[in-house]
């Protein structure tokens, strides 16, 4: 399955602005740390199809971490 929303997790600083803005509340923080020592944001594989590709998360993200796509 192709993902609708992809996080460049190494660049994430877990500010959670995406978490707060997501209308579907599907963005979560990982328990693991990334290279910078943050818990990166992600959308689980199972939640990918709940994503509506609104891209609010990407618009809010200060670190240009998020790429959003939609089906043809």
């Amino acid at each position: 399955m192709e993902k609708r929303v992809v996080f460049n997790e190494d660049h994430c600083k877990s500010c959670e602005l995406c978490v707060g803005i997501c209308p579907k509340k599907i963005i979560k923080l990982r328990t693991e740390l990334n290279r910078q020592g943050y818990h990166p944001a992600f959308v689980s594989d199972e939640d990918q199809d709940k994503c509506i590709s609104c891209a609010l998360c990407a618009r809010m993200c200060p670190d240009a971490v998020i790429e959003v796509r939609r089906p043809q």
Partner: peptide
């Protein structure tokens, strides 16, 4: 999939 939002180059 069509990109909706990508990192600016």
């Amino acid at each position: 999939m069509i990109p909706v939002y990508t990192r600016p180059k």
